[in-house]
């Protein structure tokens, strides 16, 4: 009759956990992310304890080397680099997460519709997804980032808001960040919709919306988690490069990307300033990728051992 397939959810969780634990890099990634996130979350507290302020300009103390007062030295305006990095991390991580969640929602909806309805809708949506993937996205995003929001007819209270650059970058990045999720969700939905419980739901008269939300979506949690984790890294990279180019998050709000904007001009004077923000982006993204890879392996339904 049945093979030695594991069919209990407990068993599956245990198996997934076992496979995940084999991925030492994924665990390391999770730990690093936890540390970075808690540092960013407690930035104001740390600032108070160290008696530092992320905005305090000290023109007499420009490009100071690291010291007891300034653990990582100061920037071109004499501001403390360490605290600015923490505050930048707050913004970068927050923007990355929010944009990814928005992107994951878009991607899940598109993937679910394509996978569930199949046929022409599927072909259309996947052609669309492929086209978006194939496009030269960065220049397009630059155009989007440069668009005058007034001309778009947005309310001026929003356009003039201090945080408009945050909203804008989240919207822009989400607009292109959904493709990975869409493809993975579609693939998984194609499989789930063939399961008997979906047919059975049709059999007692459940409609398309109910089948998608109650019967298919909850069974797609793993691919959504994996794809989302893998997307956060890309989203953070996109945010940082746009901010670096001066088109993302606008100073005075610090982000890891815009902390590097001036680094290029200052590269001959203070090469050290270019080190830390980039390093943090790199560490965050690689940790996310390791984590995503580990999760993918652990939650792979095809894997056997």
């Amino acid at each position: 009759m049945r093979g030695p397939m594991v069919d209990t959810a407990d068993g599956m969780m245990a198996l997934a956990l076992k496979r995940f634990r084999r991925h030492r890099l994924a665990i390391a990634g999770a730990v690093v992310l936890a540390v970075l996130a808690s540092l960013a979350a407690t930035a104001p507290l740390i600032a108070t304890i160290l008696g530092l302020d992320w905005e305090a300009v000290d023109l007499l103390n420009r490009f100071a080397p690291s010291s007891a007062a300034h653990p990582l030295g100061t920037d071109e305006l004499g501001r403390d680099l360490f605290i600015r990095l923490l505050y930048g991390g707050r913004i970068s991580l927050l923007v990355g997460l929010t944009a990814t969640v928005v992107a994951a929602l878009i991607g899940t909806a598109i993937g679910l519709l394509a996978g569930f309805y199949g046929g022409r809708l599927d072909a259309l949506l996947m052609r669309f997804t492929d086209s978006v993937i194939a496009l030269p996205l960065l220049p397009l995003l630059i155009v989007l980032a440069a668009v005058d929001l007034d001309k778009l007819g947005l309310p001026s209270s929003l356009v003039q808001s201090q945080y408009v650059s945050l909203y804008r970058i989240i919207a822009i990045v989400a607009l292109v960040g959904w493709t990975t999720v869409a493809r993975l969700v579609r693939g998984a939905a194609l499989t789930v919709r063939e399961r008997d419980f979906v047919l059975s739901a049709r059999g007692y008269g459940a409609g398309g919306f109910r089948i998608m939300t109650v019967h298919i979506l909850p069974n797609l949690i793993s691919p959504v988690i994996v794809a989302t984790t893998l997307s956060v890294g890309n989203v953070i990279l996109l945010e940082s490069v746009l901010s670096f180019l001066g088109l993302g998050i606008q100073p005075p709000i610090p982000s890891w990307g815009n902390l590097l904007t001036n680094a290029q001009e200052l590269i001959w004077t203070a090469p050290g300033l270019a080190m830390w923000p980039g390093m943090l982006i790199f560490i965050t993204v690689i940790a996310l990728n390791f984590l995503g890879d580990g999760l993918q392996d652990a939650l792979d339904p095809k894997a056997t051992d």
Partner: peptide, 9 residues
Amino acid sequence: PYGSLNPRL
């Protein structure tokens, strides 16, 4: 009977 019941309900 393994496939006809939604495992998440």
